[in-house]
Write a protein that binds this DNA or RNA. Sequence first.
RNA 1: GCCCGGAUGGUGAAAUCGGCAGACACAGCGGACUUAAAAUCCGCAGACCUUAAACGGUCGUGGGGGUUCAAGUCCCCCUCCGGGCACCA
Length: 871
Amino acid sequence: MPEIEKNENQNRYNPAEIEPRWQARWDADPSLYAAEPHSSGKPKFYCLEMLPYPSGQLHMGHVRNYSIGDALARFMWMRGYNVLHPMGWDAFGLPAENAALKNNTPPREWTLKNIEQMKVQMRRIGLSYDWAGTEIATCLPEYYRWNQWIFLKMVENDLAYRKSSKVNWCPKCATVLANEQVIGGCCWRHEDTLVEQRELEQWFLRITKYADELLDGLDKLPGWPEKVRTMQRNWIGRSEGTHVDFAVSEPEGQRVSESASQRVSEPEGKIRVFTTRVDTIFGATSIQLAPEHPLVKQWALNDAALQQSVEEMIGQQKVARETGDIGNIEKHGVSTGGHAVNPFNGETLPIWVANYILADYGTGAIMSVPGHDERDFEFAQKYGLPIKRVVAPSVSGTEEIALPYTGKEEAVLVDSGEWTGEASLEAQDKMARFAEEHGFGQKTTTFRLKDWGVSRQRYWGTPIPMVYCINGHEGVKPQGVVALPESALPVLLPEKIEITQEGGSPLAKVPEFVNTTCPVCGGPARRETDTMDTFVDSSWYFYRYTDARNSNAPFDSDKANYWFPIDQYIGGVEHAILHLIYSRFWTKVMRDLGLIKNAEPAERLFTQGMVIKDGAKMSKSKGNVVSPDEMISRYGADATRMYALFAAPPDRDLEWQEEGVAGISRFLARVYRLTSKFAPVVRELEKNAHGDEIAPSAFAAQTPAGAALLRTLHQTIAKITEDFSGRWHFNTCIAAIMILVNEISTAEAAMDAGDISAGTIAEVFHKLVLMLAPFAPFMAAELWEQMGGEGVLFRQPWPEADAELARESEIEIPVQINGKLANVVKVAAESDEETIKAAALADEKVAARLVGKTVVKTIVVKGRMVNLVVK
RNA sequence: GCCCGGAUGGUGAAAUCGGCAGACACAGCGGACUUAAAAUCCGCAGACCUUAAACGGUCGUGGGGGUUCAAGUCCCCCUCCGGGCACCA
């Protein structure tokens, strides 16, 4: 074989030179990462990472998130998939308004500038997004008009409605928050700011209509982390039980009026309770009402003492709720003097008000069964209410078990009239049916999930496309709500606006915006001045990506149906019950509107761990923030992103250590030097191969050194290929590549000396570079070109592992004596158990240890180990 | 209180199916190269005991018990850390 001149000089790794050069080349080709038409015949793969809020500064959490997605997208391209890899901006939100206040910059300008800045950072990292085809910014009318469009569809379908209710108010945001945005009694953006309760008129989305489907659907999402599914299950909080109506006899001098029983549309003169244990109803010894129960409110009007107690209890609940201490407050209660009749046995029970009853769960009223409920027990003890046993464990027979006894699986009813002797679970069913037949109750399901309040008293969000007709007209009262027609969209956010710190909707102070005409009667009208929660924007953005430039519809259904569901969604777990539940809801709504066919947005979800520094989450206040820009200018983008994948498995928290990045950078320099040096060898062969796959391995494997190198190569390919298919332990993938490179490095002298064929050298470097492509795209592209590779590296076929070449001919077998390692023996890889056993016994060290002992048992695991049990 | 994670060398971690614990790195130490340093390359490296050194031995995956020829891995109990839920009737 002719001597090929190697490249000994030009092999210093200089990412500062390589990376900008390649970035410029990639940026110059907007179709580089574009998805192909559906007719391409390739299987599709929708790879999605959560879109960022354009704060202006990319942080390490982003780098990690996007490095994972980028590696996967590039890998899937190389595996021959048609990949959609989009990116956009979650561009509405309060920080823009705060910045406007601080710097006197309009929110739009501030946001767009930040987007440009962050895009520059993302490009520096070499992320493979189809900017030209997919990029969206949710703050632009081209996008948010479709929020308005879908909102109108929701109004039409009774999925959006307006009502007055108690809502969460963050004084710092000066706006309302959804339940999901209240974390431990505080605002999700201001962790130390307590959320207040205010009574306001708000727009709500009827997410509860889908409560059952949202819950049941979780079982059909095996590709989602169990943790996220559990959190959503808890959040939805489905609870199967029974409503029972108790007839009320009012306290002295009180009347049960019609208006008192509006809460859960209970029949007049009745209190409706919700219970999951209707089987214990014979043990009810009182009725407990929430302090905010309408009946209590009414009775308190004529009873100053009651009024005062109730106010105290409401106060206690408020404090407890705000401090997150609800659950531990001391139980207080007071008798109302009223009575209720247990419809099952005609017993008369006193009606109390108690601070441990919540008005917004169930019916705000319970039957208190102290014998079989811990809370009721505690309360009854404190106030001397009777405690009755009506359920006993069947297994213990007559043996008395201390009250409260809350078991139900093995429980049997006692002292319960005609149901005595029934098993608890069956009794629940039969008693509910009995109540239903007699018209005083029915089976019910209660949810913790509440409708999604989407009104925000802020400027920088999507205007809600509704108006209030001032004079009213047929079918609409004065000041009544009127939906705008589709043709009136988009309702544009006014550009000229003064942002102040005062509360209230900023849009209300813009007369040009507020004053309009009623689309139905043409009379004067005022616009809704609240804007939509920004979680609306992110609830469906991934559909828009499939058809981002469509100006006639939110997207083309055929396109969405081709790409959906998302094959892999990657993001932080902090959105487990915010974005991830809203977007599941939105998907179901759009499905019912006929826009899409899929019931769930994403087939698989991956939640990556946090990036931490010095043991704590990076934050400005802790001063432990590491800037991606700084890392990139010091070590290069390849080293930075590769470290983010190497330092920990992606699902775990990652401790950022700069020395580690330096280590990766050294590793890359070694790869670069070696590959660059032998690139001419590869190029030469490539030229002669005429496009055929170069260096068929069988031909190349002619020396032991070459064979060993090829063995490691193919083992590495097998490992990485397998890992990409699900486990995603990129840290061990990169470790495997390091082992390969170490081996190449060791073989350098042999390669120089011609002990390893040019074909082998070519194959090794060729495939090494292909494997580096998802992790270090800049350097891989550079080396690919140096090796004479043609076409785009990221569209080259991923190397196939050759099992034959990967196979070890000889393996080491540990020999244990009584489970302790005695020595390691070498045997042929295919050796059967007898051969291995013989080799073990023949080993000198092993033999020496066996002197004077008897082998009573030998365990041989083929290809694994030998254990000699001796006496 | 309930439900999920997690705990492995000085550090980040590996061990995918019950089969050599610590792969691969970082930091460290020793050496080569250099006038010197940096860079690079080579080597050592869990703890303890024994030893002049080596050989050798013991212990070791948060703690305690168990199953097994064999346990980081399976079972039971407990501690600590992180996260979620929490008078949800």
